[in-house]
């Protein structure tokens, strides 16, 4: 068994596709129209055959209250691995991304949390190398 797909609920799939590709830098993998919505997945440029991220519509009535409660308490919907949180923070701030938590050293990891403009908070995390 393998984990090949994970996902985030987004309030606008086309806006999300732009944010996750043009701003974050992921690559579009699938964009299959399914009536009102589409099956849209993106992958990392660093691992194009790796786990796909599904940009899933938040149309189910349970989703928005759920995501709102998470966002109120600052809880991210998912987390992406980066080599250097400080450098990513600088790159994304220059592109206009709003961070609710700047790079924070938590001992074994450095994390930061930003708003994906489609309803979610997203964490980026850098594991410190053991030296």
């Amino acid at each position: 068994m393998r984990i090949n797909l994970s996902g985030v609920f987004v309030n606008d799939q086309q806006k999300a596709l732009r944010f996750y590709t043009e701003t974050l830098g992921f690559r579009l993998k699938h964009n299959i129209p399914l009536g009102e919505f589409a099956w849209i997945t993106v992958v990392s440029e660093e691992a194009p055959e790796g786990t796909e991220l599904l940009l899933e519509p938040d149309a189910h009535p349970a989703v928005r209250p759920f995501i709102s409660a998470l966002v109120e308490d600052g809880i991210p919907s998912t987390s992406f691995a980066v080599d250097n949180v400080e450098a990513e923070h600088e790159r994304l701030v220059a592109k206009g991304v709003r961070f609710v938590q700047p790079p924070t050293d938590l001992g074994p990891v450095i994390t930061a949390v930003f708003d994906d403009t489609c309803g979610n908070l997203i964490q980026i995390a850098q594991e410190k190398t053991q030296s």
């Binding site: 308490d73 600052g74 809880i75 991210p76 609710v100 938590q101 700047p102 924070t104 938590l106 001992g107 074994p108 990891v109 994390t111 949390v113």
Partner: peptide, 23 residues
């Protein structure tokens, strides 16, 4: 650091103080 969310505070308490209280 001023202006933290509950999530950030919980992460700091766990990782820096070893306090594993629930949210």
């Amino acid at each position: 650091r001023s202006g933290q969310t509950l999530f950030e505070l919980c992460a700091r308490l766990t990782m820096k103080h070893g306090i594993n209280s629930s949210r």
